[in-house]
Design a protein around this nucleic acid. Sequence first.
DNA 1: CAGTGGTCTAGACCACGCG
DNA 2: GCGTGGTCTAGACCACTGG
Lengths: 269, 269
Amino acid sequence: MREGVGVAQQPKYRQIAAELREQIVSGALRVGDRLPTEPQLQEQYRVSRNTVRDATALLVNEGLVESVPGRSGGMVIRKKVTLTFHAHRAEMPGPTAETDAWRSEVVRQGYEASQDFRLTIEVLPAELAERLHVDPESSAVLRRCVRYINGHPSSVQDTYYPMDLANEVQELLSPKDIPQGTTRLLAERGYSQTGYYDEYVSRMPTPEEAALLGLQPGTTVLQYIRTGYTEQRPVRVSINVFAGDRNRIVSTHGDASVIATFRPEESPE
Amino acid sequence: MREGVGVAQQPKYRQIAAELREQIVSGALRVGDRLPTEPQLQEQYRVSRNTVRDATALLVNEGLVESVPGRSGGMVIRKKVTLTFHAHRAEMPGPTAETDAWRSEVVRQGYEASQDFRLTIEVLPAELAERLHVDPESSAVLRRCVRYINGHPSSVQDTYYPMDLANEVQELLSPKDIPQGTTRLLAERGYSQTGYYDEYVSRMPTPEEAALLGLQPGTTVLQYIRTGYTEQRPVRVSINVFAGDRNRIVSTHGDASVIATFRPEESPE
DNA sequence: CAGTGGTCTAGACCACGCG
DNA sequence: GCGTGGTCTAGACCACTGG
């Protein structure tokens, strides 16, 4: 039903969503506050329940609100906490281990860190075989690490090593976290990584990722693929999938000292 | 209505969505193909129209399909074309101008490039003032560039320069594209950029961005913020907003020659 | 228990665009 | 014209969770 008056070019549910959105971004509604309930919005805007729900569905998909079940629940304004992942610190040659780098980074930002680790041997997907420059259908060691912040899943890192490398460096087959970090381990065995190829993509999660990371509808993922090279060849490819609403990735290029001067909070302490 | 049989733990619309999704990712339905129409799906699954619509809405929000209006329209499987943006090439000191760098990159990947340019003077948002290390509420030159690929908007780049810098390098106030590129211009005036601080975020677009970039529902954005530093201070901050379904960003670190050996450039087809 | 959102139905009118 | 999806209504039953 189009409004009789000439103003309404937007459908009702978009107008309602726009008003609610405005209240959120303007700060009239704060993080943790609840939107009016569905019956209240029906009354307020004189529309049916489905129209109200179309409006709130928009906001959910925009990641502005989420639904909390139960009597004292409702549509609540979402918090935006962001953990910063430093791409240029992780896996860099040096004394720090990569997992410790991630963990200490999380702790430094004031959160509690934990992770689940799993090792499998997989047939390499064609996309990754290309990156590792090995035959498609060849197998690889997959080391998967699910990372939690304050007990909530935050990101997944899948790192693949070509099988021939794992045969030379048998520790890669250890089904446990490698204390000193695989980068350092490889360096000790003569596979120093000297170059990285990083790819960044933003997309919606697959249902599996949504389940694994506990993503609300309307939450994006930031996918970060790093291919690591020695002077001779690619030796690893990591697929990192971050919950978009809880992470950002930073990286520096060039002269780091000036940057540290002006962004002191980012420097390691 | 829950199914009487014990299998149905998922709501109907999710089951329907899952079956359709499977057909898409498995390749049974290809890019450009249409999903069955709503009446067909109602018949096939014996559900109401709204339930069918709940299912397709999921797929739309996942970015797998989009709605095409009109009689010969319907829900069609979306194409995934990705333009690669090379973060380490853009704005690097050297003979190439930055806009030319973007344009030639697009052309090399086999597309047609164009852009709209606009200059304004703005009060710096607090977030950006912090990055430029100037007073909040101070003003800045904003050079906005909307970039089109094959005539469709693909990304927006907003670059801010502190006002005092613009007073020294008046060309920054030119309301036209600067042929040799602002990076090179600044270098010629003694402001060589020697360091960069890059930030990557994945999120849903604001309604304004969705309109500007012509984004379908269920399309994410990849936001990339680069702060450029001379040896003395930050001199620019660029906010790049990419349509998530059409772009990826790549960057290299360390020894680039090995990488080039194993990743002979993504060539146009 | 009572109130929240989640799912589902049945039916209606509309805008769009190809034939 | 006519079939596509877009919007909207009215009403129903359900699952969850705090008081």
